[in-house]
Computed example of a mutant assay.
Amino acid sequence: MADGKNRADVKPGQRVKIVLKKDQRMGALTEGTVKDLLTNSPTHPHGIKVRLEDGQVGRVKEIIG
């Protein structure tokens, strides 16, 4: 299971679990499908930032599948 810190591992259409900005303290994860990748750098220590199909934005914590 990839952890979402490498941009190359995250692709549009993938199912992922992200942490939303409002949930960072609690660490609650939100599941959804990637629409856009918002982080341009090849890696990020807190996870690649993405926009889900439903419009929510957060950092990838888990890649499903």
Rank of each mutant, 00 (worst) to 15 (best):
D9P: 02
K22F: 11
S41D: 14
V34L: 05
G32T: 08
L38R: 06
D36H: 08
R7V: 03
R7C: 03
Q24P: 00
T43H: 02
A28C: 08
K22W: 14
L38V: 12
D54Q: 06
E53L: 11
L38A: 10
L37R: 01
T30H: 05
T43Q: 06
L52K: 12
N40E: 14
K22L: 11
D23M: 01
I48R: 03
G47L: 02
G47F: 02
D23V: 05
G27W: 08
N40C: 06
T39Q: 04
V19N: 04
R25Q: 15
K35G: 00
N40H: 12
T33C: 08
K5A: 07
L37E: 00
K21W: 09
K11I: 05
L37S: 07
S41I: 10
A8N: 10
K11T: 12
D9V: 04
P42S: 11
A28M: 05
L20W: 10
D54C: 02
V34R: 00
Q24S: 14
L52C: 10
G27R: 07
H44P: 06
V34Q: 11
K22Q: 15
V50N: 00
N6T: 10
L29Q: 14
R15H: 13
T39A: 05
K11V: 13
D36Y: 15
K11R: 12
P12F: 03
L52F: 10
T43K: 14
P45G: 10
L20K: 11
P12N: 09
T39P: 01
L38D: 06
L52Y: 09
V16S: 07
S41R: 06
L38M: 09
K49V: 11
S41F: 08
H44W: 05
Q24K: 11
T33R: 07
E53C: 03
K5W: 02
G13H: 14
R7Y: 07
I18L: 08
K22C: 13
D36K: 15
H44Y: 03
N6A: 11
R25M: 13
R7K: 14
Q24M: 13
E53Q: 15
G13L: 07
R7L: 09
K17S: 09
V50S: 02
G32N: 04
K22V: 08
G27S: 05
K22H: 04
D54I: 07
R15W: 09
N40F: 15
G27P: 07
G47M: 12
V10A: 03
L52R: 05
R7N: 04
R25S: 12
G47W: 02
N6F: 12
A8D: 01
K21L: 11
